[in-house]
């Protein structure tokens, strides 16, 4: 696991998500980081339905709703909770930790 320093926590307001530009240390598909109020979570910024930008979705609890067609995705597990026939697909999630006000995302050394 390699931890990548991303940005100061205040750049992501409570109950909102932000997209992180892809970089040489990060996966080719951009990551979205969400501030859930009491913690941060990171997930691939791509809805399994139509590729919608999840960072732009509305957050309720630990669920984000894709802005394009209202698919609901659990931010902890990456699983689709609505529609139920979308439950087979999942979104890749990443561990997040905060170090002195800076957000770090954990990337597996051997990408899947």
């Amino acid at each position: 696991m390699k931890w990548i320093r991303i940005t100061e926590t205040e750049n992501i307001p409570p109950r909102e998500g932000r997209v992180i530009a892809a970089g040489k240390e990060l996966p080719a598909d951009p990551i979205a980081i969400f501030n859930l109020g009491d913690r941060f979570v990171a997930i691939e910024n791509r809805c399994p339905h139509g590729g919608g930008p999840l960072a732009d979705g509305i957050v309720g609890g630990a669920t984000v709703t894709c802005p394009l067609h209202n698919w609901r995705i659990c931010l902890d597990s990456g699983r689709v909770s609505q529609p139920c026939d979308g439950a087979a697909s999942t979104v890749r999630t990443f561990p997040v930790r905060v170090d002195e006000g800076v957000l770090l995302v954990g990337i597996s050394e051997t990408p899947r």
Partner: peptide, 13 residues
């Protein structure tokens, strides 16, 4: 507002 319109560039970059 904080990064209202921007894509956040990772600090590493």
């Amino acid at each position: 507002r904080p990064s209202q319109f921007v894509t956040i560039q990772p600090m590493e970059h």
